[in-house]
Amino acid sequence: MPRRVALVCLGNICRSPMADVVLEHQLAEAGVDDVEVSSSGTGDWHVGQPMDERAAATLTAAGYDASRHRARTFTADWFDEQDLILVMDSSNQADVLALAASDDHRTKVRMYRSFDPEADSPDAEVPDPWYGGPEGFDEVLAMVERTTREIVRHLADTA
């Protein structure tokens, strides 16, 4: 049975889909084939929309395929479908935990950057690049790539 990892941000058009694409790519490169990756947002206003054009352009320029994403919303039933839920910031964490019905659900939730070797805290956040320029998306991609390498190691070690 595959393990399932969900990535969660606010609107599911920038941070979590970028992390989704990079995680799928790095898992394939590492030969880890028993992990399914998905992403969602805590808000529902972008449901069905593709990834933010700036996020997609940043991924495409780095050699990733950003074309398949469609935004979805995190709902309480995701807890039963996922083994690990990685949230991008404390607001996303609070929104996800508010839907948790049990301690089992709550233990599945971690901050995404808790895997980041450069994070100064396990509670460090992935900044939302939505309101900034292209450099914010480049910063998020660099953060996602290095953090994802550690997530892939963790998943390979716990197989």
Rank of each mutant, 00 (worst) to 15 (best):
F137D: 00
Q49P: 03
R68V: 12
D65R: 13
A76I: 07
D89Y: 00
E135T: 08
P134A: 10
S67G: 15
P117Y: 13
D116C: 09
F79H: 05
D65L: 13
P127V: 13
F79E: 04
S40I: 02
P50K: 08
H105A: 15
M18Y: 06
Q93H: 13
S90W: 02
Q49V: 01
S121K: 09
W130D: 01
L155Q: 09
D44S: 05
C14D: 00
S67D: 12
D80M: 08
T147Y: 06
A94P: 04
A100E: 07
D83K: 07
P50Y: 07
W130H: 11
L7M: 09
I151V: 14
P134Q: 13
V109Q: 04
E29R: 14
V22M: 14
R146A: 05
E81L: 14
D89I: 00
S102R: 12
Y64Q: 12
T147C: 08
V109N: 03
M88P: 02
R54D: 02
A124N: 10
S39E: 08
A71E: 05
A62D: 07
A94L: 10
Y112L: 14
D34C: 09
G136K: 03
R106C: 08
G48A: 03
M18C: 11
S91E: 03
R110N: 09
S102W: 15
D104Q: 12
P122F: 11
W78K: 06
S121R: 13
D80N: 10
Q49L: 06
T42W: 00
A71M: 07
P134M: 14
V32S: 07
D83A: 11
D20C: 00
R113P: 08
V37K: 03
L99W: 03
D20A: 02
D77F: 05
M111S: 04
A62E: 08
D52P: 05
N12R: 03
P117L: 08
L155K: 08
S16T: 00
T73V: 12
D83E: 11
D138M: 00
D123I: 03
A142R: 14
L7N: 01
V126W: 05
F115N: 10
S40A: 15
G132K: 04
L84R: 06
H25G: 06
S114D: 12
G133N: 09
A55Q: 10
D138E: 15
D157A: 15
V144Y: 06
D116M: 12
E24A: 12
